[in-house]
Each structure stands twice: as structure tokens, then as C-alpha cells.
């Protein structure tokens, strides 16, 4: 059977002061030892991990922002490059147009000048030819006249002579 004593504090063989003191002492020692050898290091590593994770997150955040910034920069650069290229092409086209215009104008002017020169040369040649003809005719007249004076000729002879002379003159030319 149960004895009532087992349930009543301090009943029976006296107050269990030793148990109380021992339990208290053991618990305090246990707590101190655990703090030094187990909980302390464990808390340390947990704190360390917490810091590590926080640092990693921060670094990730920073690199993300950096990447975004760089992307923006690259995009800007690309845009600028594209714009530059566009400008260059535009310039080249304008330049080409201008050059074409110039070349055409120059060619036109050149042809005009050539034509002018040719016309002038033709004129000069013509004048020279006319002058030369005139001189020839004069000489021929003198020649014919002298022949006529040299010898009394029949009409046929005279005619023949004239023809000969003219032919000769033609050969002379």
C-alpha cells in the first residue's frame, strides 16, 4: 500500500534539505557548464551565420543594383553607338549627294568649256581657211594673168590652160 508520507513534503524522516541544496547546486553548475561549453559556442555560430547571411544578402543586393546600373550603362552606350552610326550614315549620304552634285556640275562646266573651245577653234580654222583661199586665188589670178600675157592663145588653148592651171592649183593645195 501507498504510505501517505511519500506525498507529503518533509514528512517522515525529516526535511530533505540535502536534496534541495544538491539539486540547486547541480542545476547552477550544469547551466554554467553548458553556457561555457555548449550554448555559448552554439549561439556564437548561430550569430555568425546570421551575420553571414545578412552580409550575403546585402552583397547580393549591392551586386544586383550594380548589375542593373551596368546594364543601364550598356544600354545607354548601345543607344549612343547606334545613334552615332545613324549619324555617320546620314553624313556619308549627305556627303555623297554633295559630291555627286559637285561632280555633275564640274562635268557640265567642263563639257561647256570644251564645246566653247571647239567652237572657237572651228571659227579660227574657218577664218584661216578663208584667208588662205583668198591668198591662193590672188596668186592664181596673177599666175593666170602672167600666162595670158606670155603667149597669144587660141580660145581652146586658153581654156585648156585655164583648166590645167586650175587643176595644178588644186594639186598644189
Amino acid at each position: 500500500m501507498f504510505t501517505l508520507d511519500a506525498f507529503i513534503l518533509g514528512a517522515g524522516e525529516g526535511f530533505n534539505g540535502g536534496d534541495i541544496a544538491f539539486q540547486l547546486l547541480m542545476f547552477i553548475i550544469l547551466m554554467a557548464l553548458l553556457k561555457k561549453f555548449a550554448w555559448g559556442p552554439l549561439m556564437g555560430i548561430m550569430k555568425q551565420r546570421e551575420d553571414h547571411i545578412a552580409g550575403e544578402i546585402e552583397a547580393a543586393e549591392k551586386s544586383r543594383v550594380e548589375a542593373k546600373q551596368q546594364l543601364e550603362e550598356q544600354r545607354q552606350l548601345l543607344k549612343e553607338a547606334r545613334q552615332d552610326a545613324q549619324e555617320l550614315i546620314e553624313n556619308a549620304r549627305k556627303q555623297g549627294d554633295l559630291q555627286r552634285e559637285e561632280i555633275i556640275t564640274a562635268a557640265r562646266a567642263e563639257s561647256e568649256r570644251l564645246k566653247e573651245t571647239a567652237l572657237r577653234e572651228i571659227g579660227t580654222e574657218k577664218d584661216q581657211a578663208v584667208a588662205a583661199l583668198r591668198e591662193q586665188v590672188a596668186t592664181l589670178s596673177v599666175l593666170i594673168a602672167s600666162k595670158v600675157i606670155e603667149k597669144e592663145l587660141t580660145l581652146e588653148e586658153q581654156q585648156q590652160l585655164i583648166n590645167e592651171t586650175i587643176a595644178k592649183a588644186g594639186d598644189l593645195r
Partner: peptide, 28 residues
């Protein structure tokens, strides 16, 4: 020393403390 000790309690408190200590220390 004028105090009553229940040796069973003393033993078990010690055993429990030792086990807790061992578990905690070995796992850390």
C-alpha cells in the same frame, strides 16, 4: 551535516545533469 539526503535523488539528478551535459557538448 544535519541535512537529509535522498541518495536516489542525488544519483538521478547527477545522471540527468550528466546526460544533458553530454548531449549538449557532444552535439556542439
Amino acid at each position: 551535516l544535519g541535512l537529509t539526503f535522498n541518495l536516489s535523488n542525488i544519483l538521478m539528478v547527477t545522471v540527468a545533469s550528466a546526460i544533458v551535459f553530454l548531449i549538449a557538448v557532444l552535439s556542439t
